[in-house]
Every structure is written in structure tokens, then in C-alpha cells.
């Protein structure tokens, strides 16, 4: 498997506080990876750097076979290049229907002119219906997404990410505020997605991570503390110290 995303030697400082400190991270095509760490470990900042929201002070972020640097690109360009991101709290467009939300996310030309003259083809409608089925929202497809339950909104957002057909998916706490049954479905959706693309899941909840059954990266104070299977990292003395306190 070739490397899809390579982050090396990245540091970023906010007002003297080092949020990310010489961080290096790699992920291959079609890999599922969980990133865990205590509050303030730099998990969200890491995602901000990859998606172009935050510019690092130093380091490299390379993406794809051609190893394009993501550092000079705008958020929209990075998204078009194939990086999708799900935020911590569900952010779907609440006054629009599930269908419209998915249609907007569908991988298409994003330029204003072509969007203005865009006509919905039969193929696109089918694709949206397919996605809705994949995330279990077939019955809700014509409802306003503001009416959905919290868990359904989370799925809708994941569905919007899948519609973008990204090569790398960054998912921030997908299971927050979900019931047990909803969590199980979320795990399934993510595992399924990771068969064809790289998926990075940031999560607090160890149970959820265990269910994902994948390689785990532990972040602490802005750099990687440990990496390996969940059993391997939880046996690591440093990790125990960080999580349980010295």
C-alpha cells in the first residue's frame, strides 16, 4: 500500500502555545486509523492543518501519488483534491432537505457558472438515493434536515462526505451524543468507507475505538506518543501515565 498522506515535522504555535510540536504522521490508501489523546493534545489542530484552515509554522504536508503539498492550497482546493472533513458537532444545512444536502456535496464541478447552469441528471438522483440508503436515511430523504435527530444529522454529514468521494476522510468524534445502536451503525459506515479510501477518526471513547478494530495513534502535547494496535498502545506506560495522570 502506498502512502496517501504524509505529514512530517509539522509545528504550529498559537500565541506562544505550541499546539503541534514536530508532528509526523502517515496513512496509506484504504486504511482506517483512530487518533486518540487527552484534551488539548492537538487532535483538532492536526485536522485543521491538513484541511488548510490553519497554516503550520514549519513542516511538510504531502498528499497523493504526486506528493502535492497542501500547505499552499485554499480549503476549497484541498477539498477538491480529495480531502473530506467531518466536524465535531453535526453541521448540515438545516433549512434544506436531506436530498439537497447530499446533492450539494456530490462530486461535481464546483465553479459558480457550472453550478448555476447545473441540471440534475437521472444518474445524480440515483447516486443521491444510493447514498441515502448507505447512511440509512432513505425514508427521510425529502425531509428538512433540521428535523432530523442528532444521530441522523451525524450520518447525513458522513453521507455528504462520502458524496464528495474523497480519498482521505477526516472524521472528528463521529459518535458523540449517539445511542449505542447508532454507534454500531456509525462504526459500520466508517469501516465500509475505509475499504476504498483512507479514514482518520478522532475519538475520545475507547469502546468506540475498540469496535473500529484498527491501528491507533496516540497524540499528546502536539506530537505522537505511541502508535500500534489498541492493545499495544494501552499497554504502553507513557500512554497510561498521560491518560491516568502521573
Amino acid at each position: 500500500m502506498s502512502t496517501l498522506l504524509e505529514v512530517s515535522g509539522v509545528s504550529v504555535t498559537f500565541d506562544g502555545f505550541r499546539a503541534i510540536n514536530n508532528l509526523s504522521f502517515q496513512i496509506a490508501d484504504a486504511e482506517l486509523r483512530a487518533v486518540i489523546g487527552p484534551n488539548g493534545a492537538g487532535k483538532t489542530t492536526f485536522m485543521d492543518i491538513v484541511t488548510g484552515k490553519t497554516r503550520p509554522d514549519e513542516g511538510r504536508v504531502l498528499f497523493g501519488e504526486k506528493s502535492v503539498s497542501l500547505l499552499r492550497m485554499s480549503e476549497a482546493k484541498i477539498a477538491q483534491a480529495g480531502v473530506g472533513r467531518k466536524f465535531q458537532r453535526p453541521t448540515v444545512f438545516e433549512d434544506q432537505s436531506v436530498f439537497d444536502n447530499l446533492l450539494m456535496a456530490l462530486k461535481k464541478d464546483r465553479k459558480p457558472w457550472s453550478v448555476l447552469f447545473y441540471r440534475k441528471s437521472k444518474r445524480d438522483t440515483e447516486r443521491v438515493e444510493e447514498l441515502a440508503e448507505q447512511i440509512g436515511l432513505t425514508e427521510q430523504i425529502h425531509r428538512t434536515s433540521g428535523e432530523l435527530s442528532h444521530g441522523q444529522k451525524q450520518w447525513l454529514e458522513i453521507g455528504m462526505l462520502l458524496a464528495q468521494e474523497p480519498r482521505l476522510l477526516l472524521v472528528d468524534e463521529p459518535a458523540a451524543g449517539m445511542t449505542l445502536a447508532e454507534r454500531e451503525q456509525t462504526t459500520d459506515i466508517l469501516k465500509e468507507a475505509a475499504k476504498t479510501r483512507a479514514v482518520v477518526v478522532v475519538e475520545h471513547d475507547m469502546e468506540f475505538v475498540r469496535r473500529l478494530n484498527c491501528k491507533v495513534t496516540v497524540l499528546h502535547e502536539g506530537s505522537v506518543l505511541a502508535e500500534g494496535s489498541l492493545d499495544h498502545v494501552t499497554a504502553n506506560q507513557d500512554v497510561i501515565d498521560v491518560y491516568l495522570g502521573r
Binding site: S74, A76, K77, A79, R85, F87, T91, R110, M160, Q164
Partner: peptide, 8 residues
């Protein structure tokens, strides 16, 4: 959110 969907 729109920006991260890839729209400028």
C-alpha cells in the same frame, strides 16, 4: 462547511 465541501 461550504468551503470544506470544496466550493470557493
Amino acid at each position: 462547511r461550504v468551503r470544506f465541501l470544496g466550493y470557493s
